[in-house]
Design a binder for these strands. Structure first.
Lengths: 128, 128
DNA sequence: TTTGACCCCGTACCTGGGTACGGAGCTTAT
DNA sequence: ATAAGCTCCGTACCCAGGTACGGGGTCAAA
């Protein structure tokens, strides 16, 4: 299939496919002297793999690693996933802490609803 | 004080201060014909305000809004904070869902520890 | 065979939050 | 008064993950 059809099938932009080729996530098939490049269903599967990995939070760099490893090395694949998991857990904790503070401030603000705003006050005076 | 001293006091890079000036978060004091710009403690307080707001997850655009509102409008300030809170909650939920999936995959992988890797298999076959 | 849709390729641009560089002018301590 | 160190200013670059543009080649259906 052509790149346009591949893009539609995968639900990505044509430019994204070219970008992945530049990033080394997808091979660029040979272009016949007369004609355009053709893509196989395998490339489509690879694109879907990339999308699902992105939904799990993997970066393109990590996804390139996963693709290169393939079915071969469970251990190395798991190491990548564990690293991603650790990072996600850190981000969750950071966000939860922000949420707790923000939630408290918003509640206090709603209770008073008049200057001086506790949100502003907190940002001005919080201990460093 | 000079920009270098201000940067050291606030714990930010000089270039960051200039960047904030370009973004409209900080005013650029007039430069005397002979000499360099001088900054007041008020600018330092503003910088610290920005840093604390960043720690709560606010974007620079939002922080510019908070600074413009000042103590004036509790309601508008709260609207910004509520928006940030909603966004943070969404991100937490997304990350928690990623964590759940990843954690299950990593555990399954650890249990088997041989190809075909369940992580790779999952990325290949997940329903769209 | 023509016309409209599609592909190719290089390059530039986008968001967000900065960082780096380099030459010229200014200040400060000795 | 001179050297070291600072400031100023414009511009370019960084990360990630793309998106956009424009001129030329190609393909497919009427």
């Amino acid at each position: 299939m052509t790149i346009g059809r591949l893009a539609r099938q995968a639900g990505v932009n044509i430019e994204t496919i070219r970008y992945y080729q530049r990033r080394g996530l997808l091979a660029t098939p040979r272009k016949p002297p007369q004609g355009v490049r053709r893509y196989s269903g395998e490339t489509l599967a690879r694109l879907r793999f990339i999308k699902r990995a992105q939904e799990l939070g993997f970066t393109l760099r990590e996804i390139a690693g996963l693709l290169k490893l393939g079915d071969g090395s469970c251990r190395e694949t798991r190491a990548i996933a564990e690293h991603r998991l650790t990072d996600i857990e850190t981000r969750i904790r950071d966000l939860q802490s922000m949420r707790a503070t923000l939630d408290k401030l918003v509640r206090t603000c709603r209770a008073g609803d008049q200057p001086p705003c506790p949100i502003i006050a907190s940002l001005k005076h919080d201990i460093d």
